[in-house]
Amino acid sequence: MVNPSKINEGGVQYSIGKFDGQTVVYDFPKVLVYLNAKGKLLFGKDFKIIEEDHQIIFKLCNYFVKDLEKCAKNDIDPEKGILLTGPVGCGKTSLMRLLKHLVPMQRPYRVIPARNIVFGFNHIGYKTIEDYGNGQFFCFDDLGVEPIGRHFGKDCNVMGEVLLSRYELFLKTKIKTHATTNLSAKELEDMYGNRVRSRMRKLFNLVAFNKNAKDKRK
Rank of each mutant, 00 (worst) to 15 (best):
P104H: 08
E161F: 10
G125N: 08
L83S: 04
I175H: 12
I82T: 04
A37E: 06
G160F: 05
N3K: 12
G193S: 03
M96H: 11
K40E: 14
N212C: 00
K66V: 03
G133A: 01
M159R: 04
Q55E: 07
Y14R: 10
K6N: 04
E69Q: 07
K18Y: 10
H101D: 07
G120K: 04
N210Q: 09
D20N: 15
G144D: 03
F209M: 05
I56A: 03
E79G: 14
L163W: 03
D141W: 08
K59A: 05
P104L: 09
V24D: 12
L143V: 03
F209R: 00
Q22K: 15
M96Q: 10
F204N: 05
H123A: 14
G120V: 14
L99P: 03
F19L: 11
T23S: 14
T128K: 03
K174V: 10
T180M: 10
R217V: 01
L60Q: 06
A208M: 02
G144Q: 02
K100E: 06
K92F: 03
L98P: 00
F170C: 01
K30L: 12
K174T: 12
T23E: 13
R217D: 01
C61I: 08
G17Q: 14
L143E: 06
P78S: 11
K48S: 13
R115S: 15
V158H: 04
K6Q: 05
V65R: 06
G160H: 07
F170I: 05
L143W: 06
K100T: 06
P108N: 14
L41P: 01
N134W: 02
K211H: 00
G11H: 13
N205E: 10
